[in-house]
Design a protein around this nucleic acid. Sequence first.
DNA 1: CTGTCATA
DNA 2: TATGACAGG
Length: 338
Amino acid sequence: MGVQLGGVLPKLEMGLEELRGKKVAIDAMNSLYQFLAIIRQRDGEPLRDSKGRVTSHLSGLFYRTANLIEAGISPIYVFDGEPPRLKRKTLEDRRALREKAAREWARALQEGRIEDAKKYAEQATRVDEWVIKDAKTLLNLMGLPWVQAPGEGEAQAAHMVRRGDAWAVGSQDFDSLLFGAPVLVRNLAITGRRKLPGKDVYVEVRPEVIELTRVLSELGITREQLVDVGILVGTDFNEGIKGVGPKKALEFVKKHGSLERAFEGMDLGVDLEEIRKIFLEPGVSDDYELKWGDPDPEGIKDFLCGEHDFSEQRVQVGIQKLMKGKGEKKQSSLEKWF
DNA sequence: CTGTCATA
DNA sequence: TATGACAGG
């Protein structure tokens, strides 16, 4: 879920064309979760192959990534490692919520409430280990680099942007800003259709770019204070304060300067320093290699069509997009040479 | 989510 | 050419 800061952050809406030629460090967990949550039939059942194995994540990852590459954008998928100790409670809470949703899903199906079924199916979404493994296999076949983070993927992705290995972090969550990402890009998809949560209503959305320096200067706060705003609203590592959204949290931090001052003598019920450290000094690694290789068309077809019953025709179109993007990349580096 | 096909 | 409904796996 991440920290909910939407609404108070300055953003720039862009066309996909403006992102051409850029590398984006994408939060893999975030993407896979969304594919699994949304790529479903009307009763909430995910896509499956003939052996009953779920394939929604492969569908989303393959077609979206092929589109990004065709658009000249180079995705670098970053996978989560070990969660910080403080995230355990959040993860357990989410598991309980998923299990409840799964029961509601079954009940809604039984009672023929199809729309409810779909809603609960979405809430029951979980990213299992085999989903990650499938994703890495597919990325390897597509000739794309991916990075294993030691800790939080968003932190590693932010680190990679700071090092200049990518232009921006791609995620729907705002956490990477707290992790110090200079640029965050949201809504990184081709078709501008996005479903409003809980309803079958779609709205047009464009990629939106959020720059950390602009955020801090326009809000008039430091990154440390932005982290404190997040802590008040709630993060993956603490619950936040009931009734406090980004607006109030921002007012609060600006008025008092820090959470210690604001809550002098009161017990916030959280280890402030430990949470701040997660965002300000996260566990990240420089030990990664970014190498773009050629896509392996036969391997992709064996995996998606042979193993998982994808349509050869559709997959072929995807492969062509990968080749086309690859060709353009070669061309642009050649152009630089001359 | 993305792709495709029918419809205007 | 644009929009909507539905299938995909």
